[in-house]
Design a protein around this nucleic acid. Structure first.
Lengths: 143, 143
DNA sequence: AACTGGAATTGGAATAATTCTTGATATTGG
DNA sequence: CCAATATCAAGAATTATTCCAATTCCAGTT
């Protein structure tokens, strides 16, 4: 049985549909890049990587796909200062530590059982729908 | 004694110099707007307010002044998602709660003695230089 | 009070990330 | 298969912000 020319197989671990979102070739490829690399790429970085497999992909499509994935809760959008948005497939509630020296962004988990409400003085009746925690600094290797 | 036409007095509580930064008329006015209103305005909102007293102020100057104030640690720059930056004269370490229904941004203090390190699992050797905590949600008035 | 060097301000042009628009393509349900 | 709908591509448009060049202002000196 002969495959049609453009029928490159999508990575097997990406299903046909996620969270009610139809996973087109473009969305699959973009999602695959995020889960394989896990280095919080920008839309443009995703675009460059994805072009290897989808040569006539458009940057606008990358933006569309990333937005669709964010809307459906499949990935998260992360912002550092006013830089380009970055995208992250880690759905656990977590923060980010931006190492200013290396540029590396580390996911920071909560200590088991701990929540932000433990340390913050939230106003009465506050219902928190979304949290963004970003730390900037460096990793010192002094003991 | 007659004042010259453009000699509107700056608010008296703003000193000549803050943190080594020369406080020009423009910087004074911009800083005054921030401490009087405390509603986290954008550069453009500051611009509109400041025009009342400085009719030939330029938006570029507002950006310059805000940047100078931020660099000298007199105010803080706060970002919500990809919206325009907002500016905040509250120098205590604090987070922000963005009420999605009213648009109001509340400063959120830490509980006395609490720090982020109490709840986050920071990597070994991490030296945190800056923290940004932004919450989005609503204030429910149910008991 | 004029002079001077450096800093600040202005206004407009430039930039960069993102969104929008339009027409083409693909996919799904009937 | 056909119609309706969703998605995609390419480029134009938008928006916040930065850059730039030309003036203006200011502090210190004479």
């Amino acid at each position: 049985m002969v495959s049609k020319l453009n029928e490159v197989q999508p990575a097997p671990e990406v299903p046909e549909e996620i969270a009610g979102l139809r996973m087109t070739r473009q969305r699959q490829e973009i999602y695959r890049i995020l889960i394989e690399e896990r280095n919080h790429p920008t839309a443009n970085e995703v675009f460059i990587k994805a072009k290897d497999r989808l040569p006539n992909l458009s940057l606008a499509t990358v933006y569309n796909c990333l937005e669709a994935l964010v809307q459906h809760g499949v990935i998260r959008q992360v912002n550092f200062e006013r830089e380009s948005s970055r995208f992250c497939p880690n759905l656990r509630e977590h923060g980010h530590f931006h190492d200013a020296e290396t540029g590396v962004i580390h996911d920071i988990d909560f200590k088991p059982g701990a929540t932000l409400a433990d340390v913050l003085d939230l106003p009465a009746g506050a219902v928190v729908e979304d949290i963004e925690i970003t730390l900037r600094g460096k990793i010192s290797n002094h003991q």
